[in-house]
């Protein structure tokens, strides 16, 4: 059952767009945040709001890997096993976590806490090997650090992303993706260490774009100031 508040929020998402069907992807994120997965009731409600068939909604929900048709644990742990991360150690991390948690790919631990999945390149290759927890970066992992990470998550300890805030639950994360911000945007650093290596070398050498003062946003020229 989709309650009336959720229904109102689903309608609010659809109204952000010139044509309401554009809201479907964020709407499905919201369904996951309240239902813990994509459910028949969620599909029906989206279909009603958008005036399309449930089959059309299902067709969309099954196309995208972030939508889950089985319950997801409080923490979705995604190990990048695309080539770069795999070779830098991601394959060994994934093997270790399967063993450590006693689950296979896309399975959830008995306590309902952790769902393990191998994921594709998450645009963090300079921090390889990378693990994502509820789509937050956990950079530069080893098999040991990853095992500790999932132990901490299962024990209910607070875990902080290496480039972000404390990790929220999977359902809370899905709500943000639906376009309902939480209040964590200001947490965490602007950039992790690897993002800054080139900039630091430029600073040490006094290198800049032509005529530009160091540290400006749009290459503001010195002579303009």
């Amino acid at each position: 059952m989709i309650d009336s508040q959720t229904r109102a929020e689903l309608e609010e998402i659809a109204a952000r767009y010139p044509q309401k069907r554009s809201g479907l992807l964020p709407m499905l994120h919201l369904v996951q945040s309240v239902e813990g997965q994509i459910t028949p009731a969620g599909i029906e409600t989206c279909a009603e709001i958008l005036d399309i068939s449930a089959a059309e909604v299902s067709g969309v929900a099954t196309f995208y890997t972030m939508y889950k048709r089985r319950p997801v644990g409080d923490y979705h742990v995604g190990v990048c096993t695309n080539t770069l991360c795999a070779i830098m150690g991601g394959d060994l991390i994934f093997e270790r976590l399967k063993d450590h948690l006693d689950v296979g790919n896309d399975e959830t631990t008995d306590d309902g806490k952790v769902t393990l999945e191998h994921v594709e390149c998450n645009a963090a290759c300079d921090y390889a090997p990378v693990v994502m927890v509820n789509w937050e970066f956990m950079d530069n992992q080893t098999p040991e650090s990853a095992a500790q990470l999932v132990d901490d998550l299962r024990a209910g300890k607070e875990v902080t992303s290496t480039r972000g805030p404390r990790i929220v639950t999977w359902r809370e994360a899905e709500r943000v993706l639906a376009g309902f911000p939480d209040d964590l945007a200001d947490d965490g650093p602007a950039a992790g260490p690897a993002s800054l290596v080139g900039l630091q070398i430029a600073r040490q050498n006094g290198w800049t774009a032509p005529g530009v003062s160091t540290g400006s946003t749009t290459g503001q020229r010195e002579d303009d100031q």
Binding site: N205, T217, T218
Partner: peptide, 16 residues
Amino acid sequence: TDVLTPVLTDNWDADR
């Protein structure tokens, strides 16, 4: 031109 030319990255080390 210098070897590295930070423009888009030039404020990434700024506070907040």
